[in-house]
Amino acid sequence: MTKLLTARVEPAGRLRSLTRRPEFTLVLVALAGFVALAIATNGNLLSAGTLGAFFRFLAVPIVIGLAQMVVLAIGQMNLSVGALTGFCAMVAAWAMLEAGLPAPLAIGVALLVGLVAGVTNGLLVVFTRINGFIVTLATMTIIEGLRYGVNGPDTFQGYSPGLREFGRASLLGLPVVFLVALAVAALVAFFFARTVTGRQLLASGGSPFAARLSGISNDRSIVIAHALSGLLAGVAAVITVASSGSVNSSIGDDLLLPSFAAPIIGGVALTGGAVSVAGTCLAAFIVRLVDVLQAQFDINRRWIDLIVGAVVLGAVLLGTARQKLLRRSS
């Protein structure tokens, strides 16, 4: 009889625990927002072309949000993530058009540039002992100059037809670049949930002192987190080059706010020690809905930035309040 009661209580407890998670709230908000926007656009959002474009341009916000999330996991920030994405995109296009490299090699070069820049960020933080916010603010400015130096104000276009075709391709009705972004998200989730290095990053972010006593190198965690962030920025750059068909020196300028909005709205703490890949992806979906709302109804972009910024601020304040309540209850 006791076993039967326990069996009945456990599913109820699991359901209660699920509904209390921030991701559950985000799912409800995302569904409600999508339905409301579909109704407001008289069903235009549900057309094959519009829906395909929606998910195609959702790929970069997901990956760029993950690029910021991995640094937030150790309690730091990467302000250079948008500029680095644009720089890697410019390098990939330059490699194809000016250096004559085939698309696979150009993609490899872009990923390598992102990885090297990320490692450099991490090493600068470790050796200077300056906060990552300041270090990446400086490298962001440097990278912006380098990005402009690749081709000045001119636009790169007419590169690999195969890569551009890949950016437009669909599989089972979904854009391939969106499926790539989901695959990247799955790999990041596996990294933090199942690998020793991923758990060490979370330990360093949660309590650097306790991590050090456990034999974990916080410096190593900092370098790995920034390196992974740079690599993900390179992935976002490749997706941008494939799906846009042309790149210029302004690529990446509008990615900094979305890079913070997705993980913070998704429930990632600024203090480090916790990540939410699902929450980051869902929040990127919600921010993308706001972008579609702006495009459909010709709302001034500044108002959209105000809304997203206010939501990010609200998420930070709610997260801080939740942490205080948890500390009091414990």
Rank of each mutant, 00 (worst) to 15 (best):
Gln157Cys: 13
Ile264Met: 01
Gly108Asp: 08
Phe133Glu: 12
Gly33Asp: 14
Phe57His: 03
Ala284Tyr: 01
Pro175Ala: 05
Ala83Gly: 06
Lys3Phe: 08
Gln323Ile: 12
Leu45Glu: 08
Val116Thr: 14
Leu146Gly: 02
Val176Glu: 05
Trp303His: 11
Phe190Lys: 12
Arg220Tyr: 10
Gly65Asp: 05
Pro258Arg: 03
Cys281Ala: 11
Arg288Pro: 07
Gly145Ala: 12
Pro104Thr: 08
Ile286Phe: 11
Phe297His: 11
Leu255Gln: 07
Gln296Arg: 12
Ile299Gln: 05
Gly267Ile: 05
Phe190Ala: 13
Ala89Lys: 03
Gly162Leu: 04
Trp94Phe: 12
Phe297Lys: 02
Ala262Arg: 08
Ala7Leu: 15
Gln157Ile: 13
Asn218Trp: 04
Met69Asn: 05
Thr139Asn: 14
Val223Gly: 03
Gly33Pro: 02
Leu257His: 00
Gly234Met: 01
Arg168Val: 00
Asp154Leu: 09
Val177Thr: 06
Thr128Gly: 12
Gly234Leu: 06
Ser276Gln: 09
Ala211Glu: 00
Leu289Asp: 06
Ile74Ala: 01
Ala315Pro: 00
Leu182Met: 12
Thr50Gly: 04
Pro102Glu: 09
Leu111Ala: 03
Ala210Gly: 15
Arg212His: 06
Thr155Phe: 14
Gly205Phe: 02
Gln296Met: 10
Gly75Tyr: 04
Ala261His: 04
Leu97Cys: 05
Arg288Tyr: 13
Val184Arg: 03
Arg164Ser: 09
Glu23Val: 09
Ala185Thr: 03
Val135Thr: 03
Leu257Glu: 01
Leu26Ala: 07
Glu165Leu: 13
Thr141Cys: 14
Gly86Tyr: 00
Thr136Trp: 08
Phe192Gly: 07
Gly65Ala: 15
Gln296Ala: 15
Ser160Lys: 07
Ile251Gly: 03
